[in-house]
């Protein structure tokens, strides 16, 4: 298999993530879309690491960090979402209009 295929897959995944980010009304789905983008990055890193940097495998280490940080980010995101759900009884993005966009 060639490196390009992995990169294309990652790019496609990234685009799907961006699409979801832009179109979703549900905040949880937006969070998921962001995860998708981060996973695209992970794919990229893994592919590069395998093909270009098999000795040092920095990319794989990087991916581990990305996964960890993404988990933290998701945790914080869900916590905030929970707080907002308690206050407002909704997670619909269109309802969040206390502050002018």
């Amino acid at each position: 298999m060639q490196l390009q295929y992995f990169l294309l897959l990652a790019a496609a995944l990234f685009c799907i993530g961006v699409y979801g980010l832009v179109t979703s009304r549900n905040a949880v789905r937006v969070l998921m879309s962001i995860e998708l983008m981060l996973n695209a990055v992970n794919l990229n890193l893994m592919a590069f690491s395998n093909y270009l940097d098999p000795a040092m495998i920095k990319g794989q280490i990087f991916a581990v960090f990305v996964i960890t940080v993404a988990a933290a980010e998701a945790a914080v995101g869900l916590a905030i979402l929970l707080a907002i759900y308690r206050n407002r009884d909704t997670v619909d993005m269109e309802q969040f209009n206390l502050l002018k966009w």
Binding site: M37, L45, D53, F62, E73, I80, F96
Partner: peptide, 28 residues
């Protein structure tokens, strides 16, 4: 405050995902 945090998180996380994608390209 909730709403500000959510907006900040969503936009911030997506921008850092963009940044990260660029970084992964640099790595490659």
């Amino acid at each position: 405050s909730n709403e500000a945090a959510l907006k900040y998180l969503l936009i911030g996380a997506s921008s850092s995902a963009l940044f990260l994608y660029g970084v992964s390209l640099l790595y490659g």
